[in-house]
Simulated assay, not measured.
Amino acid sequence: MTTIDPRALRNAFGTFMTGVTVVTAHDADGNPLGFTANSFTSVSMDPPLVLVCLANSSQNYDALTQADGFAINILSEHQKDVSNTFARPVDDRFACVDWRTGPHGSPVFDGVSAWFDCSMHKTVEAGDHVILIGQVQAYDTSPTPGLGYARGAYVTPMAEAEALSQNANLIVSALIAHGNEVLLVDDGNGGLALPEIRVGKDGASAALTKLIEASGLSAEPGFIYSVFEDGAREHQHISFLCQAADGIPAKGCFTELSASTLMDIADPAVRIMLERFASESRMGNYGVYYGNQTSGKVRPIVSGS
């Protein structure tokens, strides 16, 4: 079994759990099978357990309940076609996606935000569904943002950003994380800050792309982590949580959010946001802040469908 880093796995759960997923396995003859699911749920960190629910009426019921394991593929924002294909009857669903056999044996997709390859821990009958509980044996994540689904439509980070980009005085910052560290830059006054940029006529998505390109890192836009009105600087501020791959930033450095580091954050609103991020990272349970620079509400990102 692959050694699982509990803290890294907890962060992966917290970052990707609300995305659209495809659950995959092999049937008794070795043929790949899969179906689209709105979400999955973390059950335990020790051992690392996750669950998904399957309708008793599903044509995959027998194969999945008798399988040795299953994989959870968190689709990226560019994989709407994959979601649609695995959500309806298609002769060869796997023809539309590049995939391979994962370390524990279930199909894992290329180009996804994350995948978790699990052994079957237990199946539990629950009314007209069966609960499949898997133990994570291997996993991988990428900086690619996930695909969301709400109120009958797909949701992507950039769609959210553009909906908030009508304010002419808008600042976008990138909360670029790698492991337990965050990219911080010199604010020009002896303090530290997140990379940020004023939004121009091209909109928030273009502004965020410029920030990421300037960082010199391989990272892609994640979900909106905080939205607040900054009365002190008279602007609206949107901060995106972005996961970075390995690499050295062109400007600034990755820093763990210790108490001494947070004291060097000059902007009090950003400091409070990063204090919250440090706390949520430890728990692997994120929320989205809406308010102003002094008060507001955190809306939890709730797992489960």
Rank of each mutant, 00 (worst) to 15 (best):
G127D: 04
H129D: 07
V130Y: 03
L132D: 06
G134N: 03
Q137Y: 00
Y139Q: 00
T141P: 03
T141L: 02
G146I: 04
G148L: 15
T156P: 00
P157R: 01
E160K: 10
E160N: 15
E162A: 01
L164D: 10
L164C: 09
L164Q: 14
L164A: 13
Q166C: 10
Q166S: 10
V172H: 11
A174M: 08
G179A: 11
N180D: 13
L183S: 07
G188I: 08
A193Y: 03
A193S: 14
L194K: 07
E196Y: 14
I197E: 13
G203P: 06
G203N: 03
A206P: 03
A207K: 09
T209L: 10
I212A: 01
G216S: 04
G216Q: 06
G216A: 05
S218N: 05
S218R: 11
E220V: 01
P221N: 02
G222F: 04
G222V: 08
F223C: 01
V227W: 05
F228W: 15
E229G: 06
H235G: 12
Q236D: 14
Q236L: 12
I238K: 06
S239E: 08
F240H: 07
F240M: 13
F240E: 02
F240Q: 04
C242W: 03
C242P: 11
G247N: 00
G247S: 01
P249Q: 00
K251L: 09
K251D: 11
C253G: 09
F254M: 07
E256G: 13
A259D: 15
A259I: 14
T261Q: 06
I272M: 07
I272P: 00
M273S: 15
